[in-house]
């Protein structure tokens, strides 16, 4: 593939799309044909995303099939992955096939699997976070330096102040926690957010101008 197609055309498309979206956001009033046309442009991303989802599914199945056939590392886990993907896909498609007028129909079986297997597993994984927080707090919260000590004290005040036990120990603790949230947290949050916004705008500028192009394809042929 020539360098023009692989390198320069994507840069031109990137630049044009970026400029069009900025103009559309600021100058095309909602509801006008010009704005609707750009909405169509962003809407087309959904098509791309759906196609990428299909590719993701194929890649997933291919990766694990190859792993099973080669008896690769932990290939037994791959069997579970493939069974899970195919089984739930069939259940989902069956629901849609039996109710063609309702594109997002969830059959009773689909809902049962979702509510009793997926929901339980998802909640379990999220709740494991409590254990990770406990072990992270245990090993990482140390009075190493002034900054670490401030972090530790503020963390402890928040922990106590944001649970009923804080109020039971001393009524002032929830007030302190609320103040920490309302004042120092808001200040720090705003500073970081402003920095991030400026950084993101300049990153976009570098990309639109083709200066920073690490995300594009190979530079050499």
């Amino acid at each position: 593939m020539s360098l023009v197609i692989k390198r320069y055309i994507p840069l031109v498309i990137t630049f044009l799309m970026g400029i069009i979206m900025v103009i559309a956001t600021y100058f095309f009033a909602p509801g006008t044909p010009a704005r609707d046309a750009t909405a169509l442009l962003t809407g087309s991303v959904d098509i791309l995303v759906v196609m990428a989802g299909v590719i993701g599914l194929i890649v997933l199945i291919r990766h694990h099939s190859v792993n099973i056939s080669k008896r690769g590392r932990f290939w037994k886990y791959s069997i579970f992955t493939i069974i899970g993907v195919i089984l739930y896909l069939i259940i989902g498609l069956y629901g849609v096939a039996t109710h063609p007028q309702h594109l997002m129909y969830a059959s009773d079986l689909f809902a049962w699997v979702y509510n009793n297997i997926y929901v339980s597993m998802d909640m379990t994984i999220f709740s494991l976070l409590a254990f990770f927080i406990a072990s992270a707090a245990y090993r990482a919260f140390r009075l190493r330096s002034l900054e670490a000590s401030i972090l530790l004290i503020v963390g402890a005040l928040m922990l106590l102040g944001r649970a009923p036990v804080g109020g039971a120990i001393w009524e002032g603790l929830p007030t302190i926690a609320t103040w920490l949230l309302n004042v120092p947290n808001t200040a720090g949050n705003r500073a970081i957010t402003i920095g991030i916004a400026i950084g993101a705008i300049l990153l976009a500028i570098r990309q639109l101008m083709g200066i920073e192009r690490g995300y594009l394809g190979p530079e050499q042929q």
Binding site: G195, I196, A200, L203, I205, I211, E212
Partner: peptide, 27 residues
Amino acid sequence: GEELMAAGAYLSKDPTQIGSLWGADFS
């Protein structure tokens, strides 16, 4: 935060990209 967005320019050591990071200070 913004250190993440500056990473590409920082790692490239390209003066032009680093120049745009300098612009963030003005902003």
